[in-house]
Amino acid sequence: MDVQLRRGLIEICVLAAMLRGPTYGYKLIRDVEPYMEISESTLYPILKRLESGGCVISRSAEHNGRLRKYYEITQLGAARIDEFLSDWQDIMKAYYYIEREKNHV
């Protein structure tokens, strides 16, 4: 898969994994893993980017005597997901067209 496309997809998956509430790095990986290949080192720059882009906010909270960073999706982040879903409706239309034509021939 194209690197940019992959990165974009992971970003949206990571955002989607925050829709149920604030979450943390390890859990994000566990949640996204079944759908997209993701590792600690791929997640880190993505979180940074999402955070500096205002899609995510983070705060540190104590967990078992250490600090854990929790990430929360912002309205901007939620809007990114909506945008993605509506973009992909168009892409899927094209996909089905391509598939149909391919099977026809």
């Binding site: 943390y24 790095g25 390890y26 859990k27 990986i29 600690e40 880190y44 078992n64 250490r66 600090l67 854990r68 960073k69």
Partner: peptide, 16 residues
Amino acid sequence: RTIAYYDELIEDRKEA
């Protein structure tokens, strides 16, 4: 911050 991130993820794996 990067070190803190990896520290946290290693600890979380250990906890799991």
